[in-house]
Design a protein around this nucleic acid. Structure first.
Length: 427
RNA sequence: GGUGGGUUUCCCGAGCGGUCAAAGGGGUCAGACUGUAAAUCUGAUGGCACAGCCUUCGAAGGUUCGAAUCCUUCACCCACCA
């Protein structure tokens, strides 16, 4: 067992705690900690990494982690940090999402290592048996509305004139609070961790535990992971970065971390990797002294991709990176190319047009979707932004031929630095 | 209800009878530099059969050799007065 509090503290992961004695309490004996995840989609995304890694660390330190998937709370929608009432998901969607997320947890937590094996629970299991009357009598009775009204998550919504807060969302914290009390009874769980926006819900659970069972519970929040420019980590113009390879390919996932700004790299390394503090400090120094080597980003991308996608996913991502950012592409097989460019859009074109010498680069860029009009295509080529197999096209009249095939039937097109498309000419 | 002002290309915003596909800025896209970064610099930025042609300036009509620019009607927005 190592000092988890000290570890979290040094990594900057302690935002708020409910008790100053938390550190010694944690070190006294193995404890059971829980973090909740709402099943809002059929995959988790980068935003969930903080919670997953926190549980992961607790487990490494010798404590018992419980990952709670909110099958029940997900039906309500947490108003914390949300500016608008949420749309309700269907029971069916929630069930699928819950299962998919549970599967993804396996990369982060060990569910069968005996002593402090992780537990996976779904609050729907204990919530669905409740009748409304029962819940009001047993649970609701313990919540003073005036206290609830004081919570930031509620207050901020009441202050808005453009979007209110439904009774349903207002009641959300009762459900989450009950989860904590319930896990305490069932698993002896005594501490709940969460993002800083969960503070209100966590303390509500602690209050409930004291009122219902006279137990002392603890809470811990981590800071929100944001970028130095204020934006949310894990969001790109094209949407969130997901953990599921179907939604975000390992290559894209890897690239996201490779491209993390220097200013954010240190934080990400501390929050999202298992690297020792000593290693991280070395990387900090490397970023300072030889930033061009980007050791931090490489290490970060490697580490995070590996835990999410495993060794094979990591290797695929690195291989793809080498090809995409390497020299001219040639002498590869279709299989290799299609694998590497798995998440690149592709168009299928009749091979006759290739052998007939009638397929111009101008048309090709438009047909592949890299350019939206011939004018744009023309411009791109004129400015040196059009590439075939990573080799720049220098003439507006360039016509594609069978000699341009990078593999049996594929030509790799590129616009600018990073936008690729595949043209396939199946025979 | 009355009187003025507005509606411009992705956004903001100039233009006020021909030299207007329409200044300038932002954004975006390419290029250079670089570290697959940031900053910076350069170029591009309606479509096409691209030294030319076609379609755009709230909508529909009209005046004129010619209109984003003038007139009429309609729609929406803003300001001031009731």
């Amino acid at each position: 067992m190592f000092d988890i509090y000290d570890d979290l503290q040094q990594r900057g992961l302690v935002h708020q705690t409910t008790d100053d004695g938390l550190q010694s309490w944690l070190n006294a004996q193995p404890r059971t900690v829980y973090v909740g995840f709402d099943p809002t989609a059929d995959s988790m995304h980068v935003g969930h990494l903080m919670g997953l890694m926190t549980l992961h660390r607790f487990q490494l330190a010798g404590h018992k982690p419980i990952a709670l998937v909110g099958g029940a709370t997900g039906m309500i929608g947490d108003p914390s940090g949300k500016s608008q009432e949420r749309n309700l998901l269907s029971v069916d969607e929630l069930r699928q999402n819950t299962e998919a997320m549970a599967e993804q947890m396996r990369s982060f937590l060990d569910f069968d290592n005996g002593e402090n094996a992780a537990e996976l629970v779904n609050n729907l299991d204990w919530m669905q048996g409740f009748s409304y009357i029962e819940f009001l009598r047993d649970i609701g009775k313990n919540f003073p509305v005036n206290v609830m009204m004081g919570k930031d998550s509620v207050k901020s919504r009441l202050d808005r004139t453009d979007s209110g807060l439904s009774y349903t969302e207002f009641s959300y914290m009762l459900l989450q609070a009950y989860d904590f009390a319930h896990l305490n009874q069932q698993f002896g769980c005594e501490i709940q961790a969460g993002g800083s926006d969960q503070w209100g819900n966590i303390t509500a659970g602690i209050d409930l535990g004291r009122r219902m069972h006279s137990v002392s519970l603890y809470g811990l929040t981590w800071p929100l992971l944001t970028k130095s420019d204020g934006a949310k980590m894990g969001k790109t113009e094209s949407g969130a970065i997901w953990l599921s390879p179907e939604r975000t390919s390992p290559y894209k996932f890897y690239q996201y971390w490779i491209n993390v700004a220097d200013d954010d790299a240190g934080k990400c390394l501390r929050f999202l990797t298992d690297l020792s503090l000593e290693e991280i400090e070395n990387l900090d120094r490397s970023r300072e002294d030889e930033p061009h080597r980007r050791e931090s980003q490489k290490k970060l991308a490697e580490s995070v991709t590996c835990i999410v996608h495993g060794d094979s996913g990591l290797h695929a991502a690195i291989k793809a990176t080498e090809v995409l950012f390497g020299a001219e592409i040639e002498n590869l097989t279709d299989a290799e190319l299609l694998d590497i460019f798995a998440d690149v859009p592709s168009v299928e074109i009749s091979p006759d047009r290739l052998s007939g010498g009638e397929l111009s680069m101008i048309d090709m860029l438009v047909e592949s979707g890299l350019c939206s009009s011939k004018g744009e295509s023309r411009r791109t080529i004129e400015q040196g932004g059009g590439y075939i197999n990573n080799r720049r096209v220098d003439s507006l009249d360039r016509v594609l031929s069978v000699d341009d095939l990078a593999s049996e039937t594929v030509i790799v097109l590129r616009r600018g630095k990073k936008k690729f498309a595949l043209a396939r000419f199946p025979s």
